[in-house]
Nucleic acid binder design. Structure first.
Length: 280
DNA sequence: CGTTACCTGAAA
DNA sequence: TTTCAGGTAACG
């Protein structure tokens, strides 16, 4: 579900709510045996309990919760995962429970009475508790909104790749954080065919793509991400960027630039949307 | 390099 | 009933 703008929105929302909080109790549903990586859910819960969350960071689509004592709790939401924060109950004792108990896969009680609920319809999400973050996020490419990602880096990572340019954008070892929505949107903005071999892009096209990626991600972030289906932020609210996309899931509808019907094809096994006239 | 498996529910 | 889904690891 969530790509960089969605995960970053969750990170920002959670920061003021959970930094400095201690996890007093962790619970993982026996119905989600693959959620916790590298150890049993019991051992994970035992090691997490009593730890204080000191920092909340993001790398690509991964959330990094740095804990006192050197451990990092890493969460990847995959397709349908979500992290919802329930604030401490009001003075009158009123409590808003997790809204979809059906898909609740894990629950983390905090020392202020609040809690973090991990929900995941498809159960594809994963979490780790590690000493060495690089064992999980070490192979990711540069952050597209970071300084290391410049036009030259864009050209470098497209060079020599025979795969479609869209597949390279979605390759997390090439660039971190771009998924199906923002790959299509960036390629539209850069006027490039998604199926074109990455190494065939001209220098100018690569530079347009560099600029387009940043523009698209910044705008999506400003709209708090895209909610096409399951995505909600840390308060359970939808993003707004699905109302602003130019091609994603607009098959058959007119291109906003030239009026040509948006086309849908498969690239790297994923649905891909583009304007056959604007994108060459 | 492309394809398939992992899961479950909603939409076609 | 069949297809599809904001992702990625493990295949061949």
């Amino acid at each position: 579900m969530p790509e960089l703008p969605e995960v970053e929105t969750i990170r920002r929302d959670l920061t003021s709510r959970i930094i400095g909080r201690t996890v007093v109790e962790a619970w993982v549903s026996p119905d989600a045996p693959r959620l916790v990586q590298d150890e049993t859910p019991e051992s994970f819960c035992r090691r997490l309990a009593g730890r204080t969350i000191e920092e909340l960071d993001r790398r690509g689509k991964y959330l990094l919760l740095r804990l006192a004592g050197g451990l990092t709790w890493i969460v990847h939401l995959r397709m349908t995962g979500g992290l919802i924060h329930l604030p401490p109950p009001k003075a009158d004792g009123a409590r808003n429970g997790c809204r979809d108990e059906r898909f609740l896969r894990a629950r983390f009680r905090l020392d202020d009475g609040g809690e973090l609920c991990y929900v995941d319809l498809r159960k594809l999400g994963t979490m780790w508790l590690v000493e060495d973050e690089s064992s999980v996020v070490g192979k990711l490419g540069p952050e597209p909104l970071g300084e290391a990602f410049d036009p030259q880096e864009m050209r470098r990572l497209l060079a020599k790749r025979a795969a479609p340019v869209k597949s390279v954008l979605m390759d997390q070892r090439a660039i971190a954080g771009i998924g199906n929505i923002y790959a299509d949107e960036s390629l539209f903005e850069a006027r490039i065919r998604p199926a074109k071999a990455a190494r065939r892009l001209s220098r100018v096209a690569a530079e347009r793509l560099h600029w387009a990626i940043r523009k698209v991600l910044v705008e999506a972030l400003g709209n708090r991400g895209s909610s096409f289906r399951d995505y909600v932020d840390a308060e359970g609210e939808q993003g707004m960027h699905q109302l602003r996309v130019k091609v994603f899931r607009r098959t058959g509808e007119p291109c906003y630039v030239c009026g040509t019907a948006i086309r849908r094809i498969k690239v790297g096994g994923r649905s891909t949307h583009y304007c056959p006239r604007c994108q060459r």
